[in-house]
């Protein structure tokens, strides 16, 4: 307590509400940027299908991609039904 007080007097401790501000902005902007651009999710889905299709056959009609938010993080959740795996030697490259 006393140490804390002394530190505060000499400006060494940092309540740093700006870090809270930055973190909240980071999270809210993830949502804003996704939600305000309709092409964003479609573009992301199309690119994911392209890449994943190199490795497996997937059901594009029933796949789901969305963002899930908790208090402190945002996650990209993709639920992609797999029909069939391609053979390892069938891969390009």
């Amino acid at each position: 307590m006393v140490l804390d007080l002394i530190q505060r007097i000499f400006g060494k401790s940092c309540t740093c509400s700006k870090d809270v501000a930055k973190e909240r902005l980071r999270l809210v902007l993830v949502h804003d940027r996704v939600n305000t651009s309709p092409q964003f999710m479609e573009g992301l889905k199309d690119d994911m299908i392209k890449v994943i299709s190199n490795y497996m056959d997937i059901n594009e009609q029933t796949m789901e991609v969305h963002f899930a938010q908790t208090e402190t993080s945002v996650a990209l959740i993709a639920n992609i039904p797999v029909n069939r795996m391609k053979r390892g030697n069938g891969l390009k490259d």
Binding site: T15, C16, S17, K18, K22, L25
Partner: peptide
């Protein structure tokens, strides 16, 4: 306020 860490500084805002 920037000095105290209670206001975002230039770098914070540019980064965002």
């Amino acid at each position: 306020m920037v000095k105290k860490g209670d206001m975002m500084d230039i770098d914070d805002i540019i980064e965002i």
